[in-house]
Write a protein that binds this DNA or RNA. Sequence first.
DNA 1: CTTTGCGTTAACTATTTGGTTAAACCACTT
DNA 2: AAGTGGTTTAACCAAATAGTTAACGCAAAG
Lengths: 201, 201
Amino acid sequence: MEKNDNTQERILSSARKVFMLKGMAGARMQDIADEAGINKAMLHYYFRSKEILFEMIFEQSLAQFFPRITGIIDAEIPFFEKIENFCGAYLAMLQQNPYLPLFVLNEVNQQPDYFKEKFWKNKDSLFLKFAELVDTEVTSGNIKPVKPAHLFINMISMCIFPFIGKPMFMMSSGMDELQFRYFIEQRKTEVAKFIIGSIKK
Amino acid sequence: MEKNDNTQERILSSARKVFMLKGMAGARMQDIADEAGINKAMLHYYFRSKEILFEMIFEQSLAQFFPRITGIIDAEIPFFEKIENFCGAYLAMLQQNPYLPLFVLNEVNQQPDYFKEKFWKNKDSLFLKFAELVDTEVTSGNIKPVKPAHLFINMISMCIFPFIGKPMFMMSSGMDELQFRYFIEQRKTEVAKFIIGSIKK
DNA sequence: CTTTGCGTTAACTATTTGGTTAAACCACTT
DNA sequence: AAGTGGTTTAACCAAATAGTTAACGCAAAG
């Protein structure tokens, strides 16, 4: 009765790996079975269809992608520290899930409607909270009069994009794996520094 | 003898549309044929296989994705103006090819090896030129001592990412198509302003 | 008018791939 | 030892999909 858990877990783990790398359309049930070292029929025994299995993985991924870093934004610390903490934490998470962004964004672009339903469970939009925060800081004259939407996208872009463009960037810059790792390590402080440098008075 | 050109062109145009939207794995030959309003056999008459047709589109896309904006970087204008021109021009191009980034980056991530060959034709790496330029500016004390790699990725990220994360961002911010269009219009100046604000002394 | 050859189509084939089934397996109960 | 029920497998099926073929259309050449 614990084979169950074991196998189910192995399937989910393998499915995550394959879906992340190949996407819904590119993933093959056989590949997932092979990766898990089991018979393909098992996939359908535990999860009725490819679509259902995919949804499991996608929802997990979605939950991870939207950081529960809301804590950082709500914390009783100065605005600049919030930015520093957010960028550091988000980059660290992405470092451990490097394929997450391209996977999620790809599938969201593929089925925006389906995503719309799942997404709005997450009622406390990170963006809206951030925008509120920025407006407050602008009004109190603590930072330059920046537009929250742009600042938000700028921050998110600079955190996420390096992982999406990794192979392309590595080739055009000549970096190897180790150097890229170090590059991301630097960004954990550099991104916040860059942002703050631009908005501080 | 000009039906030839006409049909071939229609196929390429339809293929571009479908591949952009669905990617290599998700695209169906039948869809491309339907989109072009022709028989599926024609696809194989003009382009032997799906793979060959895909390569045509992919190489075109790659060429577009790497801007020939080298002109902007080589121009005899102040560094800050180069940044302004680059961001403006690149955003304008992306605005007319909104699906280009996700398509290209996706396929590059899928087959980095194949990409490696095709890519290095483009020997004059935009990144290397940019890095050189930044180093010069830093040395002459015109800007703060920033790391070229970070500055480059920051700039590229802020230009490209909005198009990759568009549906997600639109939902979490509540923007509609028109507002998003205006948002991008603003970014044509805002991104450069943001960057310059951070690196100017 | 007939011939020639490229362009085009409908129908077909081969392969891939998601999904099913019936039997075997295995731990546990009686 | 036989039975029971969840788990696993090999073999199979059906749908989707890339690719092929043989015949047709038709404009230009003869």
